[in-house]
Nucleic acid binder design. Structure first.
Length: 266
DNA sequence: TGTGATGTTGAATG
DNA sequence: GCATTCAACATCAC
C-alpha cells in the first residue's frame, strides 16, 4: 500500500485519531521493526508522551511529540495503522500499540515487518542523514528539471529515487510513464523538456487524485493501473499488449511502442 | 508448492 | 563518485 497517497491517507487517519491524547501505556509485541531502540527503550521513551502533530515527507510520516522529538513511521510494504477500543479489533499482525488515556488505542500492524520505526531527536538532521529529497508534491518544476540534467539512468529509476524526490513508488511511477507515454526504460537525459514537463504535471495530478480518493483504489479512474497493469491488457490504441520487465529494480508494466523509448546517442 | 509482492538498504559490480 | 543489479529483510496469499 504505502506510497505517497497511502501515507498521506495514514497521516489524516493519525491526525484525526491520535493527536493530543496522552499515551498511558505502550505494549510491544515485536520490536523487530523498531530500528534504533529495543522494546523496553521504546516503551520508556513513549510512555506519558502526547502526539501534537505530524509531518509527512514522501513515504515517511514523522509524528511530533510534546518534547519536540519525533516518532518516525515508515510503512514498508505492509504497514498499517489501526485505531480501536476493543480487543476484538486488535489484529493478528499488531507489532506495538499505544493505549491513550481516552481508552482508545493506536496499533501499528505489519505482517511482513518491512516497516521501519525510528525514534528521531532531530528532524532536520535525520532527513539529511537519510538524504531524503523534496516531497513529490512539493518539488518545483525548476528543481525537477534540474535533477534530470546529466542523468543516464532510466526514467523509472529516477522517479523511484527517494533522494531526488520523495514519495513515488512502483505503481504510481508506472502510471506516470503510462499517462505520458514515456517508456520507463528511457534515459532521463534523453527525454525532451516538454515531455518531462508533462510527466511532472501528470505526477502531481496522479498523486493528488489518489489522495482525494483516500488512496482507495476502487475509486480511482477506470483507466488507471489497477486496470491496465495486468497480463493481457491492450494499449488504448489497441495495437499492443502490456509487457513487463524489471526496470529500476522493480517489476514494471508498460506498453511497448505505445510508450516511446528515448535513448541518448552513442 | 513455489513465487512474487505498493519498500529500503547495503554490498558488489561496472 | 555514479549507476545498476542483486540479495536480504519476513511473511502471506495466490
Amino acid at each position: 500500500m504505502p506510497e505517497l497517497p497511502e501515507v498521506e491517507t495514514f497521516k489524516k487517519y493519525f491526525d484525526g485519531t491520535s493527536l493530543n491524547q496522552q499515551i498511558e501505556r505502550v505494549e510491544v509485541s515485536d520490536d523487530k521493526i523498531i530500528r534504533n531502540l529495543n522494546g523496553d527503550e521504546f516503551i520508556n521513551k513513549l510512555t506519558g508522551r502526547t502526539f501534537l502533530d505530524s509531518y509527512r515527507r514522501g513515504k515517511y510520516l514523522f509524528a511530533r511529540l510534546d518534547n519536540d522529538e519525533y516518532l518516525l513511521f515508515h510503512f514498508g510494504m505492509t504497514g498499517d495503522l489501526n485505531y480501536y477500543e476493543l480487543d476484538v479489533d486488535r489484529t493478528k499482525y499488531e507489532r506495538f500499540v499505544f493505549y491513550f488515556t481516552n481508552h482508545q488505542r493506536l496499533g501499528f500492524d505489519c505482517p511482513r515487518k518491512f516497516a521501519r520505526i525510528n525514534y528521531v531527536e532531530n528532524l532536520e538532521a535525520y532527513i539529511a542523514k537519510v538524504g531524503l529529497g523534496p516531497d513529490a508534491l512539493e518539488i518545483s518544476w525548476t528543481e525537477f528539471l534540474a535533477a534530470t540534467k546529466n542523468k543516464k539512468g532510466t526514467f523509472k529509476g529516477f522517479l523511484l529515487n527517494q533522494k531526488i524526490l520523495a514519495g513515488v513508488g512502483n505503481l504510481y511511477a508506472d502510471e506516470v510513464c503510462y499517462q505520458t507515454r514515456i517508456h520507463p526504460a528511457s534515459q532521463v537525459g534523453a527525454i525532451p523538456t516538454k515531455k518531462l514537463k508533462a510527466a511532472f504535471e501528470a505526477m502531481k495530478d496522479i498523486l493528488n487524485t489518489a489522495i482525494q480518493r483516500s488512496a482507495y483504489y476502487k475509486e480511482y479512474p477506470e483507466n488507471w493501473f489497477w486496470e491496465w497493469r495486468k497480463e493481457g491488457t491492450k494499449s488504448p490504441d489497441g495495437k499492443v499488449e502490456v509487457a513487463w520487465e524489471k526496470i529500476g529494480g522493480r517489476t514494471t508494466y508498460f506498453f511497448p511502442k505505445y510508450q516511446r523509448l528515448y535513448t541518448l546517442k552513442n
